[in-house]
């Protein structure tokens, strides 16, 4: 289902239970916030929803066979706010030591392929306006402003 690319020593595969702590650690490193409960919920959802995907880029280096170099998580959601079935990317992370090697691009392509198989014709994400790194990454994959605008209100 997923491709191997020996040039960069990575293997794309669906996340397994043993990957949970490694993904939590990598996400904490990349985002600066530990979200243990969130990732436990995501793993539970993988078991209950076929349209939910968590793909990891694993190392093919014999010295570190269990290392996770990157991850992407998302799922197909339908009819929220009138939206037709659409793939949603909730998070992406690549180890800072392995950036600019095309790993993020491969993860993005893999989740697009998975969501397409689940019936989605488009893929969507949400990014903080000041997060230039991720905004530039998603733009470089061909993503553009979509037909929805996110609105919010402080409840404090």
């Amino acid at each position: 289902m997923y491709s191997e690319d020996r040039k960069f020593d990575i293997k794309l595969r669906p996340a397994e239970v043993d990957d949970l702590q490694k993904i939590i650690d990598l996400d904490t490193l990349v985002s600066g916030i530990e979200k243990k409960t969130y990732w436990e919920d995501r793993f539970d959802r993988l078991k209950s929803a076929d349209s939910s995907h968590l793909i990891v880029a694993g190392s093919l280096d014999p010295k570190s066979p269990d290392e996770i170099l990157g991850f992407i998580v998302g799922e197909v959601r339908a009819w929220e706010f009138g939206s037709r079935p659409c793939g949603w990317i909730f998070a992406i992370g690549v180890s800072p030591d392995y950036r600019v090697r095309g790993i993020g691009e491969k993860l993005f392509d893999a989740i697009c392929e998975s969501c397409k198989k689940d019936g989605a014709n488009s893929i969507r994400t949400m990014i903080a306006r000041r997060d230039q790194l991720n905004m530039s990454f998603f733009r470089a994959q061909g993503m553009m402003g979509g037909p929805f605008i996110e609105l919010e209100k402080s409840l404090r």
């Binding site: 306006r129 000041r130 230039q132 905004m135 530039s136 733009r139 470089a140 553009m144 402003g145």
Partner: peptide, 18 residues
Amino acid sequence: EITQATFGSITLDTLLKT
């Protein structure tokens, strides 16, 4: 802010690729 975030996130390479 939206305008600046949009122009600031699109590189010349991304625009040409798009």
